[in-house]
Simulated assay, not measured.
Amino acid sequence: MSRLSEQEDFQVALCTAPDQDTAERLAELMVNDQLAACVNIVPNVTSVYRWHDSSGKASVEKDSEVLMIIKTHAELMAELGDLLEREHPYDVFELISCNIEQASAAYLEWLENSLRF
């Protein structure tokens, strides 16, 4: 790798969207802005979660969603969050990430060359 020294700085981030069209729109924004090298879109994910309504009452909800698996870099996570803050339809959207601890050198080089630094 030429510019970056730590492979653990590369991230796999997860974000859900309400439907395929929204996920594709968000993914294209991320890739076009070079905040993500690749976004895999996984349809038909069932999410079960606790939600508090406007009165503060909690309930268990279940919804069908689309999962985006985002390949990015730790330095870009804040900008990725800003993009989702502007463009994501949820008031509370998911954006969580894990370090990439093992990957081929060729894949890491491709990631590095596909992202904005």
Score class of each variant (00 low, 15 high):
50 R>S: 13
33 D>H: 14
93 F>D: 08
82 D>F: 00
1 M>C: 13
31 V>Q: 06
21 D>E: 13
15 C>E: 05
54 S>C: 08
56 G>M: 08
84 L>Q: 09
50 R>W: 11
97 S>Q: 01
55 S>R: 08
68 M>D: 08
94 E>C: 05
66 V>T: 09
14 L>I: 00
6 E>R: 13
25 R>I: 08
1 M>H: 05
10 F>D: 07
100 I>D: 03
47 S>N: 12
46 T>D: 04
84 L>F: 12
100 I>F: 04
30 M>Y: 03
89 P>E: 05
18 P>E: 04
19 D>T: 04
68 M>H: 04
82 D>S: 12
103 A>Y: 10
116 R>Q: 13
53 D>M: 05
112 E>I: 01
106 A>N: 13
2 S>K: 15
115 L>M: 06
72 T>S: 13
34 Q>C: 09
36 A>M: 06
53 D>E: 03
59 S>Y: 01
16 T>S: 11
80 L>W: 01
56 G>Q: 00
21 D>F: 02
104 S>W: 02
17 A>K: 06
13 A>V: 00
60 V>P: 01
10 F>P: 05
107 Y>H: 03
17 A>V: 02
48 V>T: 14
100 I>Y: 06
116 R>F: 05
21 D>G: 09
53 D>K: 00
35 L>Q: 06
88 H>G: 07
18 P>Y: 06
37 A>T: 00
25 R>P: 03
77 M>V: 07
117 F>G: 15
8 E>W: 13
100 I>H: 08
46 T>V: 13
13 A>H: 02
50 R>D: 04
2 S>G: 15
98 C>M: 14
27 A>D: 05
74 A>V: 13
12 V>R: 10
103 A>T: 09
74 A>T: 10
8 E>N: 15
9 D>H: 11
13 A>W: 08
3 R>E: 15
53 D>V: 10
63 D>E: 07
18 P>G: 10
113 N>I: 10
92 V>M: 01
22 T>W: 07
65 E>M: 06
90 Y>R: 00
39 V>L: 10
93 F>C: 06
73 H>E: 04
19 D>Y: 10
61 E>S: 12
65 E>I: 01
106 A>S: 13
46 T>I: 12
31 V>S: 01
106 A>T: 11
30 M>D: 06
72 T>F: 02
116 R>G: 03
57 K>S: 11
113 N>M: 04
107 Y>M: 02
88 H>C: 06
117 F>I: 11
60 V>R: 06
90 Y>D: 07
55 S>Y: 05
61 E>V: 02
61 E>I: 06
91 D>Q: 14
7 Q>M: 14
19 D>N: 15
101 E>D: 12
44 N>S: 14
88 H>K: 08
5 S>E: 15
16 T>D: 05
112 E>L: 01
40 N>P: 06
87 E>M: 03
9 D>S: 12
13 A>I: 02
64 S>N: 15
59 S>Q: 12
92 V>A: 12
69 I>S: 07
100 I>P: 10
87 E>I: 01
28 E>L: 13
101 E>Q: 13
88 H>A: 00
49 Y>H: 09
15 C>M: 09
39 V>S: 05
50 R>C: 10
48 V>L: 08
73 H>P: 04
10 F>K: 04
83 L>S: 04
55 S>C: 11
68 M>V: 07
91 D>P: 08
71 K>H: 05
99 N>A: 15
70 I>W: 00
34 Q>H: 12
74 A>G: 04
25 R>V: 09
26 L>C: 10
29 L>R: 14
